[in-house]
Design a binder for these strands. Structure first.
Lengths: 339, 339
DNA sequence: TTGTAAGCGTTATCAT
DNA sequence: ATGATAACGCTTACAA
């Protein structure tokens, strides 16, 4: 079924059918109705490949995700979901490309096969090969997260430095003197994962500013790891009375570890961090945390990308989020006995 | 950068370049090398739209997911991940289409715009509009899950009836006489969600076979809901000593509810179910459960789809999984006092 | 208000 | 062993 067939049955030319579809030229009400009737009857829809070939654009966005084999965190999933939704609202399709594993071919296809009009990149490293690769091309792209040197780039990100710093100050205000920071996995941090580095910097700086002691540890992004991590932390640093974390996947384990150690939250021990909202709310007691606005961010990434596609020469834009800390129930004054 | 440019620079014709790329015609070693050198130098890759238009296939698979706004369960995420990986291994791209919400347009684009060579559908209802729609077209598709009448369809699914039945028998063998079944959300079940119906049927049948009493409840797919669900269950049916469930998202809440009620697992109360493996392993104590092989299933769905695409007239195929129950630590004999 | 025709970048058929 | 050329189905500039 193609446009010629529609034209024939409606007794019109192919161009007229095309113009009815696009509305880019006036068509008499009469023929318009005839054509629409045929289109309806045959359930015709233009061939996407032909249209893409002619127009030079695909009406498709690429979304590069971490290799799916390693489970996506809830936050990542939130980004994917909101990007897909926002794209759908703009009548755009989303092509998924797992990258990082042994899927270079997939990434290359998307980047260089002109399969998409633009790309959204997630899980950005401080030095990121995919970003470098994309910069060599003329393909518009936006990152969720940013590299070490993000100037003249388009991105949306969360200001982990500020957020973790705020957590530290909040805990310090409550009288805590000995803090710990639970980071994402050691591999991720070693690979130059931005949030890991920036959050750590914020932690160290704030700890220094307030004259506290601070210890930082990495922890695999899994519930069970959170438990052992907390145990080891307690063993090595019994003086610690509060932790800040950006590792939402480890949260359930941290919770279990605390419970196991017979520590009531927030009476005996405080926890604060950065997490997707429902993770914070599912913590017991609900977690005092900066809620990462994944929904807004995915949407913004799409909006930025569309802008960049529309005006390739436009000056780079970016959005840095520093959502306020939502005070919930997991932080409280340091136990008097431990002051 | 197009094939003509390559041809010009290599001093050959476009067809020869094309044949070098496809290997469908012998090309002298000499010209072959020259052409490959130019391709390498310019980092040329054929335009996907042009190729799709000419070949009549897109080298792209469609994956229809539940509207991303409602958070994906871990099992769904597992399917998405394994489908994407399997497709990438076959050098196929994956186009994501959220459906169900107000995203009919996205689904229609994928189905009828010939944007994909085939479609994988998830979250199948007993009566499923999208399946009906797809059957009207000639687009090959495979479902993960199956409709009420799945004959002459291509699908992979989990045999929830059998698995929940096995859970019941296992619990009965341990002496439990009063069981409960915690289903997925009421809306999902009301909408005809297959696993909900089939698991419930299996539960009822097995309970009858063993002469037990069984109560079944629906529970929203969220941790917090699991907690209240368990509380209400305990209040209304204090005689119940074990539950079976397919609601993995509610598991953390069920766990908390048990703890809250002062019930030790498995000493005072047993829990069994069907879940993705790591959910079972993250339960405390680890959950006795049939582990849904999401990884295999996504891969199979892709394999089936490719078969169907290759030979549209082939007889329908399907795979029904009934993985064994992995005995972990959440089930035990009924407390003697309650026998 | 409508139709004709060129051309997007491939692949594959038919010549040579 | 290689080249010219006709499609694939669409959009749009140009004619009428």
């Amino acid at each position: 079924m193609n446009i010629g067939e529609i034209a024939k049955r409606a007794g019109a030319s192919r161009s007229t059918v095309s113009y009815v579809l696009s509305g880019k030229r006036a068509v008499s009400e009469e023929t318009r109705r005839r054509i629409l009737a045929v289109i309806e009857e045959l359930d015709y829809r233009p061939n996407a490949a032909a249209r893409a070939l002619k127009e030079g654009r695909t009406r498709t966005l690429g979304l590069v995700i971490p290799p799916a084999s390693q489970r996506l965190t809830d936050m990542q999933l939130g980004f994917v979901a909101s990007v897909v939704e926002a794209a759908a609202r703009a009548d755009l399709d989303v092509l998924l490309s797992p990258s990082g594993g042994d899927h270079e071919r997939s990434f290359e296809r998307v980047v260089t096969g002109r399969r998409v009009d633009g790309v959204i990149l997630m899980e950005i490293r401080m030095e990121d090969d995919r970003v470098s690769r994309l910069r060599q091309t003329s393909l518009p792209f936006v990152t969720i997260g940013r590299t070490a040197d993000p100037h003249d780039m388009w991105w949306v990100d969360v200001d982990y430095t500020t957020l973790i710093s705020r957590c530290v100050h909040h805990l310090a205000d409550l009288g805590h003197r000995h803090l710990a920071f639970i980071n994402r996995s050691a591999e991720l941090v070693a690979a130059g994962y931005g949030p890991g580095h920036r959050a750590l910097a914020g932690f160290r700086q704030a700890v220094t500013e307030r004259g506290l002691t601070g210890v930082d540890v990495c922890c695999p992004d899994e519930p069970s790891a959170g438990e052992t991590c907390l145990e080891q932390l307690r063993a090595a640093h019994p003086e610690v009375t509060a932790v800040a974390t950006i590792n939402e996947a480890a949260l359930p384990g941290i919770q279990r570890g605390l419970q196991h150690a017979g520590l009531a939250v927030p009476r005996d021990f405080s926890v604060a961090g950065v997490a997707a909202r429902h993770w914070a709310e599912d913590f017991r007691p609900p977690l005092t945390a900066a809620d990462v606005p994944t929904l807004d961010m995915g949407e913004e990434a799409v909006r930025l990308l569309l802008e960049r596609i529309a005006t390739p020469e436009a000056p780079p834009r970016h959005v840095l989020h520093a959502p306020p800390i939502s005070l919930r129930a997991s932080t409280g004054p340091v136990p008097p006995a431990l002051r």
